[in-house]
Design a protein around this nucleic acid. Structure first.
Lengths: 201, 201
DNA sequence: GAGTGGGCATGACAAATGTCATGGATATCG
DNA sequence: CGATATCCATGACATTTGTCATGCCCACTC
């Protein structure tokens, strides 16, 4: 019997999936949570065979929980189950040594099959993501440039950015100009769009 | 026996939900689709008792399909099932006279119960949304202002906007200024954020 | 150690953006 | 009808934003 813990903040999916998995003879859902904190509390106490974690959840993300499980040395195998193929997320998940990274864009039968294979020792990454890893546009911005860009996404003025980062206004404008140049755009709005599209922010 | 058609582009949720609903003695899932076009083709041919439609799908949204069902005068009852409580979506759904508007943030057992009640003639709107309808911020922008704002969201310069809308640059700047004033912001980036948050664009 | 390249920081200057006052057209109300 | 209000459109002006040349510091290479 494979014991499973499910953390997913969209109630409909969580409850549907929990019921469905429980119908399988060899699977048993120990519990579910709608936020990362609760998930970690339960997982660390019950030590399920498999933890299926959504990424975007209140209080703590699935990646946070994956880190904690990894650092605590639990035997629980971790499956990240998320909506989109986000490079940054994926890289972090690999570092946390998750056993599976699957997209919600797969049929539930496949998920069941993957759970069994992962329990058997396999590591399964969604093919789309592995492919992406090669082609994905690397972020060409320096750390400081990212600081400035992050400070600018919400529409803060040069003056405000300068104040929060303890820079002169000219410096802030210069960073932004460098960012535009690297991203091949010509104003903040376009730069923010670009960054958001690539999930840098 | 209540026949159901399910349109949902997230495969995992679609397949999980389909299996789950089918387990109920009095429910039967005729079919599923991952895009609006396919959903309409099937629904118009098979005329299920209930169509459960996600909103954001490829090719045609669930709201498009709801409109078509309404105008074709099918007996099929429509349930919109979506993630977030978006006022604009909700209003359009009401105009299409949908029989239910539910959020994915509810347990699957509740969904099953709501399906039965709707088949029995009830109309069920998510309480969050009805409440929102009262407090929701109405869009204070004029038609022309919206034109300008839409032209500006992708980072177009004043000159570009002026050209596409056949206005002088001064006029474009003036519209933007009026927009900022009405939205209580001070630059394009903030205005775009505001508009996107309220789903005006 | 000299030379090279990259990141960090700045100020001067040019270009784009935001604000304001104004005028015409149209609709509403007493 | 006149008074009032709203939307559309514009140009003048002030402010903010974007570009460029420059200098410093550090790491790497020859």
């Amino acid at each position: 019997m494979i014991t499973i813990y499910l953390a997913e903040d969209q109630s409909l999916l969580a409850s549907a999936l929990a019921q469905l998995l429980d119908l399988e003879d060899d699977l048993h859902v120990l519990g579910t949570a709608a936020d990362g904190q609760q998930a970690w509390l339960d997982i660390s106490r019950e030590i399920p065979d498999i933890a299926i974690l959504d990424i975007e959840m209140p209080k703590a993300t699935g990646l946070d929980v994956a880190d904690w499980i990894h650092h605590a040395g639990l035997k629980t195998k971790v499956i990240i189950l998320t909506t989109f193929a986000q490079q940054a997320y994926f890289e972090r998940a690999i570092n946390a040594q998750v056993n599976g990274y699957l997209l919600k864009d797969l049929p539930s039968d496949d998920l069941v099959a993957d759970i069994r294979r992962i329990q058997g020792g396999a590591t399964i990454y969604s093919p789309e993501l592995v492919q992406n890893m090669v082609t994905a546009s690397k972020n060409p911005l320096t750390e400081r440039e990212m600081d400035v860009l992050k400070a600018a996404v919400d529409g803060a003025s040069t003056k405000e950015i300068a104040k929060t980062l303890y820079l002169s206004e000219g410096t802030v404008r210069n960073y932004l100009s460098a960012i535009f140049s690297k991203l091949a755009v010509h104003n903040r709005l376009e730069a923010v769009h670009f960054a958001q599209k690539n999930k840098w922010v």
